[in-house]
Nucleic acid binder design. Structure first.
Lengths: 138, 138
DNA sequence: CCTCAAATAGAAACTATTTCTGTTTATTAT
DNA sequence: ATAATAAACAGAAATAGTTTCTATTTGAGG
């Protein structure tokens, strides 16, 4: 947790109670959350809190490297704790479709390929969906 | 073109003028399009045409294997002609961020991996964005 | 403690998508 | 050909997720 708060400061972001709470949700839950889910949790702790702040905060936390965006096939945004917070290495994510847990995948076929099929590769995105060991047992 | 019309029939879908037109847009343009872009093109040919039909048709065309969804990082849906229309083999897509052209990638690191990191792999998605040879030259 | 930029709430706007209802149209079987 | 019928359709309206705006509050540095 302390690590994340330092990351916040490094990114020039203030340490507000709401931001701390949001980070805690991700640290404790070890899962990915949508802005609305974050908002619901936040409302339990704070009498007054607005959804727009949640959106802004999630984006800020992505920018300073604490969270990562997870692309799903619905219209909602998804965010997860970036487990690569200790170093900025290349990785992707595997998400449990049952419980929402997010893990990282270090092996990447695209890696630092500069060219594929004549294309100059600019960016790439890999998302794996599965069922984690815990949920499989259940 | 004929190939696609057969695919439509195979999928149990009617051969309507609007569907033919939509397929043509993709075949001729060789690029990915959003529902709204398709709608704009459609309106030039048909006096009356509704956006909801466009959405429905694009989804139908995905289901019968003519189009494929392309995940971008905006809120819009993107569709592209599935170049694997001749066979239903496993592949992903590379998209030119300049002109929107879509090519397929046959090599896939995830492939038919059953397990990754203890997760039972259910599905995966790879999207590569780049600049194609034509656009690089320009 | 004072200042001030950053963060915030709440309302309202916006945008992409979906749902609904009644009408039209392409296919299939006569 | 033509009638029957299930699918496709238009257009209006609703919805959902996100963003913008404005005025107020708050945290961090002096």
């Amino acid at each position: 947790m302390q690590l994340y708060l330092e990351k916040l400061k490094e990114g020039g972001l203030k340490l507000t109670p709401r931001r701390q709470a949001i980070i805690e949700f991700f640290v404790d839950g070890k899962s990915h959350l949508t802005p609305e889910e974050v908002w619901k949790k936040l409302k339990k702790r704070f009498d007054r809190c607005g959804l727009p702040s949640v959106y802004r905060n999630l984006e800020s936390l992505v920018k300073c490297g604490i969270l990562t965006k997870i692309q799903q096939f619905d219209r909602k945004k998804h965010y997860g704790l970036c487990s690569a917070v200790h170093g900025d290495y290349h990785h992707h994510h595997i998400t449990c479709i049952e419980c929402g847990k997010v893990d990282e995948i270090k092996d990447c076929a695209i890696g630092d390929a500069k060219k594929i099929k004549g294309y100059k590769v600019v960016s790439h995105f890999i998302q794996v969906n599965g069922i984690c060991a815990d949920c499989s047992r259940g």
